[in-house]
Amino acid sequence: MARFKRILKELDDVKNDKEASITLDMADNELNHLTGTFIGPPDTPYEGGKFVVDIKIPNEYPFKPPIMKFDTKVYHPNISSVTGAICLDILKDAWTPILTLKSSLISLQSLFQSPEPNDPQDAEVAKHYLSDREGFNKTARYWTQIYASDNGERDVNDAELYGIDQETVTNFETMGFTREKIIEVLRRLGLKKVEAGEPRTENKVIEELLKED
């Protein structure tokens, strides 16, 4: 049971390091299921958030990488906004046994600082990141506030949650469609904003809206 000795040591290491903004604990009193957390790095949309990572340790650890996924919902090109799955090379092919759970969590933290949109996990989010950085930052910040902050989940604004332009939603609402439907259709079509000068896109959305029911 060599790996248990190593995991215990890793747990100790994280506990003794008061500097790092990282925690690592057993999830259900088992050494092969842990929970890690880290703080969103400053000057990023994730600042001020606390992110929880679910860690499963395979039997072959440390020769095979730990299986990590986010329990906290994160808006990030390399993290699935739905499942929390992570696309990071060191958790796959580039893993070596000298890497640790601590170093992996630190790598995740730095992934927050420098996303890799060209090798994405969440295509929608990556597209948002590449096409409209400001809008992306806004949405990511909003997700951090709602899902990763201590003051818990407050009233969720669904348009903001998916980075959809408020004005666009209001525009369609005046046509008599429900807010829910509008957001659903816009998400399905992969649209964040419909400009007034784009009648073709607008018609497409209206067509979809009418198709329902």
Binding site: A123, A126, K127, L130, L189
Partner: peptide, 13 residues
Amino acid sequence: HNNQYYQCNRYQY
């Protein structure tokens, strides 16, 4: 897929 991002998620009418 690098910059002209992901055409493949678009619904093909």
